[in-house]
Structure formats: structure tokens, C-alpha cells
Amino acid sequence: MHIVVGTRSTPDTAARLEVTPDGRVDRGDAPLVINPWDEYAVEEALLRAGASGGAVTVLALGPEEHQEALKHALAMGADRAIRLWDDAWTGLDSRGYAAAFAAAVRHLGDVDLVIFGKEAADEASDTHIFQTARALGWTLFSAVARIVALESGRIRVEQLLEEGRQLAAGPLPAVISVLRGINEPRYPSFIGIRKAARAEVPVWDGAALGLSLPAPAIQVTGLRLPPTREGTCEIIGGDTVEAQAATLVEKLLAEKVI
């Protein structure tokens, strides 16, 4: 079984962010890490490929900085990493992303399953996942909490939806997105890190994929900090907890939130 994982690098989730005068994100000296949701995707691919004697290829679409996520996946044990990038792709929207990612999956040729993390923690985007499935014309299951079975050309999954847990099945090849809790991602081993550091990551561009992408139809016109909430907290005092509770309930009734 050949499993592909889609990943990207994101700033550490604790990074203090600023917006530069020309409207870009300034993450200060905070490090780039693998998108936290993607660690579950890589781990699931390693477990499933391991069980079937298969291989794991990780793909990241984007400039140099996305190398970080690929190296982390290699250090965890992925067999192969490829970065997809072409300077002509700057400003790509989710449709372009999906078209390029799908072309790379097709180029690999023998892929049975593509696994993504639930979303990109920075762009908060999952659109590219669903659209990649569409571009490939494959089965799609999102919000997968557990792979129940992966055999005989079919996949059965448990999905976590708003109302509860759904059990669903469909044919391979498929694209899935996985949730935290599906597994416990391993830490890269020392040997893994050394191997990953030495690995050459090839870059596939538009020419390699025989691809020219549609002009982006979504434009980001601004980036800003949200209105601050700091400094507005009213600490409820009182001689007893009962008195504090009574005051708080009074306030909440006045706010009309209960």
C-alpha cells in the first residue's frame, strides 16, 4: 500500500504574531514546526503502511520553509519526501493547490490513500483537502477519528461529526483527513533526525507535473490583529462563595447570556 501524506510548516502555535507594514505575518524568532494536525496524519500513514509492508510519501506544497514539515515527517520514518513548488504559484488559492497536489499524486502513480491533518493551523484552511479529493475524483472522508478497516480495496472509517460518530465505508483510492486522538504520534528518533537532516528533498515544479494553474480567484486584501479583549476583566469579590455566585449570576442575567 502506498500512502501519501499532505503537510506544511506552520509557526509554533505559541508564537507572538505581528503584522508587518506591508501586510505580512511577522512571527518574530518563533520556530516553524510541522502543522500540529499533520503529526497525526504522518503517524497514521506510518502505522498503516507498516502493517501492509507499504510505503509513505510526504508532500508539501509551498516555498522553502515547508521543508521543515517534510524533514519532521522523514525523521518520524516516512520513506520519501517531495516538495511541490513553482515561483509562478505564488498567491495560489485552494483550487490551484488541489490541482497541483492531485497532479503530484497522479505522477506518483500507484497511490491508494492520501491522508491530511484536519486543517492547517495557520491558514485555518481545510478547503484544499476536499478539493484535492475532487480533483482526483476519489472517495473523501473528513474528520476521521479511526480507520476501522483498510483492505480489499475498501476503507471503513469512524467520523466525528457534530451529532456523534458515523461509521462509513467506500472504495479506495481515497482521501481522508484525520483528527487528533486517532493515534499517539511518535517522537522522531535520533537516527531518524540524522537521516532526515541528510536527505535530499526534490522539488517538483509546474513543468515536472505538466501543469499550468488557474489564476487565483480569492484575494487576501488585508491582515490585522483582532480587537483586544485585555483589561476588561471584572473580578467578582465577596465574603463567601455564595455571595460571589449571587453577584456573578446577577451580572450574567444583566448581560442576557443566561
Binding site: P11, A124, I218, Q219, V220, G222, L223, R224
Partner: peptide
């Protein structure tokens, strides 16, 4: 507008 970076930034977007 959309919340990005875990709600630490807001991004303004428009569709063609």
C-alpha cells in the same frame, strides 16, 4: 473576514 493563526489574526478576503 476570516480568523487565521488560531484567531490571533484576522484576514480580509474577497472573491473575484
Amino acid at each position: 473576514s476570516r480568523a487565521v493563526y488560531g484567531g490571533r489574526l484576522l484576514s480580509d478576503v474577497r472573491a473575484a
